[in-house]
Design a protein around this nucleic acid. Structure first.
Ligand SMILES: [Zn+2]
Ligand SMILES: [Zn+2]
Ligand SMILES: [Zn+2]
Ligand SMILES: [Zn+2]
Ligand SMILES: [Zn+2]
Ligand SMILES: [Zn+2]
Length: 931
DNA sequence: GAGTTTGAAACT
DNA sequence: CAGTTTCAAACTC
């Protein structure tokens, strides 16, 4: 598919984002970065950071950018739409590619076939079907009687926008159609494609539809995905391994309203929408016809870590003639490669593209141009399965239907966790050894922690870009935000606006206090940046209408819910929404860890961290590349790691190259913290002044660069204690601003004595603090940090500083420095469950725990509620044919309101508790800070 | 740039 | 090993 279509065209030079880009976790910075940039429009920040490798930052920064403010976030918009309507005229679809094509010409709607195969899925109970859910009054899609396409019976769904989706009835489970590979699909698929291309206007009508639609989708981290229209969401529970995915709990909304009016979608008349929430928390909305309620139930299999790897069942979504959609686990057989993969779900678009997603992840279908058939794996490497190759994605995929209207996405929300697990399982990535915990955790943990879920919220911008909503979490760490995914290329202003808002939000959140605080600081041009943002636990749920928190922790335990959103419209746009939960068990996810993307830090500290790895294989990558941390996908992480390694090696080589300084072994001294073999004493003794003189300039320079970027400023330690970074790194002070420095050749005696003293105290004092257990493994802090108040999201934290996620070794409280992503995802879940650190198997002692500070006002529930509200607005507008702009505005307003509420709530809570609770932790021990 | 916060290192 | 104190960097304003 050419889906690329437009993507880039116009306005902003988007980097080419293709789905993959979005999806790809790893793809270096490029993807994300790019996206972000485009987003921002300005980019400015990025440069710096990138240099170092962290692009993520940028993102964050971008958020900050003022521009954002102005534009409200437009969520969900398709670029295309824009094109049509307006501005560009070009449709950009950026990232989205249309997969499906087939449009019914007549209807204009395009049709696409989507097949979801997931063995894990269980057939949905029919019962549910009966009552369709409605959100707002709008219906998303209507179904029509099944049709045969290509010999296969397909059920058509029409989305509000007029797109038609076909679900294949499942003949044999897999058989029909789904071939793992590519598009099995029906003929129809391509037909409509024209629409895809930008120019093709299928017709104004379509456009209109699109317009009306406006928002394409929102994905919540947890896996909720909302599509404005025609969304198909499939969530697969990632975590649970064994179990099939069941989508349960669809609860029909109480009132059904039929909205006939939806302007755009021809078919849509009177349709009802159902939203199903999977155990993992993913939502699937199906629009239905009156007749056929569609129920999607999947169960989320959650089984911790293992899950992913596990079994895989294919899900098939069938729509019966009756109109029900059933997702069944199909025998794996069906899909060839893809389907087989355990735990993965294959989604096929009409276009024939298939995407395989781990069950956990939610997949959006999006055809990626190139990728056609590819199976994307969220996990990328992780999954052992063959398929993985092509698209790595953790991201979302979108499929655009030819119809302009929309893009349909299937988003795979990757759970990081799942990924991780997968990795672990796969073994492919060495890095994660830490994981063990995760795995171990799986049972227990999993249950407890919801974690795995993806929490990301993604919004689609008008441009079609997908933007992560600022979840609470997100908000917090800028990085995260940035990192995430903002993909799109949004069109100009709007995006900027968005950012703006986000920023504001972030700020507010920040202000909230504890929470995450984040990093605003990180901004530093280089180094610090992104990290993982994971949010951690979420404490409370705020529901708009409902009492806010109530259940702080409850969430974890509680089963997942299906939310029915009922909206009552108020005057103004104020609408009240009520969300009802139905129980669905939450899936626990195995914690994913994000790969560590470490970068090499330029400054000295970095050096320390670097230590290990010599292994790095790959060639050196650009610094910029390093930058991407955020990347969602594991793949990214992996890549990053690789790069890092490469980098490290590079450094090492350089060092080596350099003759040892002055004869001595100085070796690494500079850079790496004394790498010295463990056994040995630190090179210290050896150290001779690296002093420059000796070294060749070039080398020196490099060393310096690499090794020391920082100069100490010690005043009381004489630079003979480990307080001094220079000394701690086995270096002599040079160009430092220290006072009474003894860390030099002139004071070798004292220095040696000091070294000895340190060694006595701690034989490993000069050994690198951060090493990778295995060559391929992710670096970890050997001792782990012990942070209490920074959430490990500030450079106070050694782990964070080294850009590595906290591990089981860490004794930190309220840690947010986890692999995953940052952003949005998971944390909340984890926290809820009490998950500890990703890695940590930790003793149970674990920690402590009360920790809890985690903030967490942004719980999944809160997020969902917020999104639902936004969606509701969209739906309303759609019905009314309101202009997109208006819709966007409203949606943003809704978001703003919601955030305000959340913030307000959080503040209140904070005020109440803050001192008390949060401090309690610390206080118990030391009161010092409190004062 | 001054002042505060933070968490490792040092000390008891 | 735990509790404190010291220290310098990180961070804030
Ligand atoms: Zn010093
Ligand atoms: Zn120094
Ligand atoms: Zn010094
Ligand atoms: Zn920490
Ligand atoms: Zn840590
Ligand atoms: Zn931590």
């Amino acid at each position: 598919m050419d889906s690329h279509l437009d993507s880039s065209d116009d306005n902003k030079p988007l980097p080419e984002l293709s789905f993959e880009d979005f999806m790809d976790p790893e793809p270096e910075t490029s993807g994300q970065h790019m996206e972000i940039e485009s987003y921002t429009g300005d980019t400015s920040q990025e440069d710096d950071s990138e240099g170092d490798g962290e692009g993520q930052h940028d993102a964050n920064d971008s958020l900050n950018t003022p521009q954002f403010k102005k534009t409200v976030v437009q969520i969900l918009e398709d670029k295309r739409i824009t094109a049509g309507t307006g501005a560009g005229g070009v449709f950009k679809t950026h990232a989205i590619k249309v997969v499906t094509a087939g449009a019914n010409s007549a209807a204009k709607s395009q049709s696409s076939d989507i097949r979801i195969l997931n063995s894990s899925l269980k057939p949905v109970g029919q019962s549910a079907a009966s009552t369709p859910l409605k959100i707002g009054s709008t219906s998303i899609a209507s179904t029509s009687s099944p049709r045969q396409l290509g010999g296969v019976t397909m059920t058509q769904f029409k989305t509000a926008d007029g797109r038609v989706l076909y679900l294949k009835k499942a003949p044999a489970a897999g058989t029909g159609g789904v071939v793992a590979g590519k598009a099995s699909v029906s003929p129809a698929a391509k037909v409509g494609t024209a629409g895809n291309t930008p120019g093709t206007s299928t017709g104004t009508a379509i456009r209109r539809v699109v317009n009306t639609t406006g928002i394409q989708k929102a994905v919540l981290a947890k896996g909720m995905t909302v599509a404005g229209t025609g969304l198909v969401k499939a969530a697969v529970p990632s975590g649970s391994s064994a179990t099939a995915i069941t989508i349960k709990g669809i609860t029909p909304l109480a009132a059904e309203t039929n909205v006939t009016g939806a302007p755009s979608p021809p078919a849509s008349s009177g349709t009802k929408i159902q939203v199903v929430r999977t155990a993992d928390g993913k939502l699937i909305k199906l629009g239905q016809n009156n007749n056929s309620p569609v129920v999607l139930n999947t169960k989320a299999p959650i089984s911790g870590a293992s899950a992913t790897s596990t079994p895989s069942s294919n899900m098939i979504i069938n729509k019966s003639a009756s109109g029900q959609v059933v997702i069944k686990p199909s025998p794996t057989s069906s899909s060839a490669a893809a389907s087989n993969v355990p735990g993965k779900m294959v989604v096929q678009s009409g276009g024939g593209t298939q995407i395989m997603v781990s069950t956990k992840n939610i997949i959006k279908l999006s055809p990626k141009p190139g990728a056609t058939s590819t199976v994307t794996q969220t996990q990328v490497q992780n999954t052992p399965s063959s398929s993985s190759t092509t698209t790595p994605t953790s991201g979302m995929r979108t499929i655009q239907l030819s119809g302009k209207s929309g893009v349909q996405f299937v988003r795979v929300m990757t759970n990081n966790k799942s990924l991780t697990t997968a990795k672990s399982a796969a073994a492919s990535t060495p890095s994660q050894k830490q994981v063990p915990q995760s795995s171990s955790a799986s049972p227990a943990v999993t249950s407890s922690t919801p974690v795995g879920n993806t929490n990301k919220i993604v919004m689609r911008t008008m441009g079609g870009s997908i933007v992560p909503l600022p979840s609470m979490k997100t908000l917090v760490p800028k990085r995260a935000l940035g990192a995430n995914s903002i993909t799109a290329a949004t069109p100009n202003n709007q995006e900027s606006l968005r950012k703006h808002r986000l920023n504001d939000l972030n700020v507010q959140l920040k202000n909230l206090g504890n929470v995450e605080a984040s990093d605003s600081s990180d901004a530093g041009p280089d180094t610090k940046k992104p990290r993982f943002s994971q949010p951690s636990p979420i404490q409370r749920v705020l529901v708009k209408e409902g009492g806010p928190n109530t259940s702080s922790s409850s969430a974890a335990t509680q089963p997942k819910k299906i939310y029915n959103l009922v909206k009552s419209a108020g005057p103004n746009g104020s609408v009240k929404y009520v969300i009802c939960n139905s129980n669905v068990a939450r899936s626990s996810m195995s914690p994913m860890r994000r790969g560590y993307t470490g970068y090499v830090r330029t400054d000295g500290k970095l050096c320390r961290t670097l230590v290990n790895s010599g292994s790095g294989t790959t060639g050196v990558t650009n610094l910029k590349q390093l930058g991407n941390n955020l990347p969602n996908a594991k793949a990214l992480q992996a890549q990053a790691q690789i790069r890092q390694r490469a980098r490290q090696q590079h450094l090492q080589q350089l060092q080596k190259a350099k003759p040892q300084l002055k004869g001595s072994q100085l070796n690494q001294s500079a850079n790496v913290k004394p790498v010295p073999a463990p056994a040995n004493k630190p090179n210290f003794e050896i150290l001779k002044p690296p002093s420059s003189a000796a070294s060749t300039p070039a080398v020196d320079a490099q060393l310096n660069l690499a090794s020391r970027r920082k100069h100490c400023n010690c005043s009381k330690s004489q630079c003979l204690k480990l307080y001094c970074d220079c000394f701690a790194n086995g270096e002599f002070c040079k160009d430092c601003t220290c006072k009474d420095c003894f860390n030099n050749l002139d004071n070798e005696v004292e220095r040696e004595k000091a070294i000895r003293s340190c060694l006595d105290r701690n034989p490993s004092a000069f050994k690198p603090k951060i090493t990778a257990p295995a060559s391929g493994d992710m670096r970890l802090h050997n001792k782990g940090c012990n942070c209490k108040r920074s959430g490990c999201l500030k450079n106070y934290c050694e782990c964070y500083e080294a850009k590595i996620p906290c591990s089981s070794m860490c004794k930190c409280v309220g840690c947010r420095n986890m692999e995953d992503r940052p952003d949005v995802d998971m944390d909340s879940l984890d926290s809820l469950l009490g998950v500890r650190k990703p890695n940590k198997p930790k003793d149970e002692t674990a920690t402590k725990k009360h920790d809890i500070r985690s903030n967490l006002y942004l719980t999944d529930d809160v997020i969902e509620a917020t999104i639902m509200c936004m969606i509701s607005r969209i739906l309303m507008h759609e019905k009314q044919n309101m202009p997109i702009e208006a819709t966007e505005r409203e949606v943003m307003e809704e978001l703003g309101e919601s955030l305000n509420q959340i913030i307000t709530f959080a503040k209140e809570k904070n005020e109440n508790n803050t001192t008390t609770t949060s401090r309690l932790d610390d206080t118990t021990k030391t009161t010092k800070t409190d004062a």
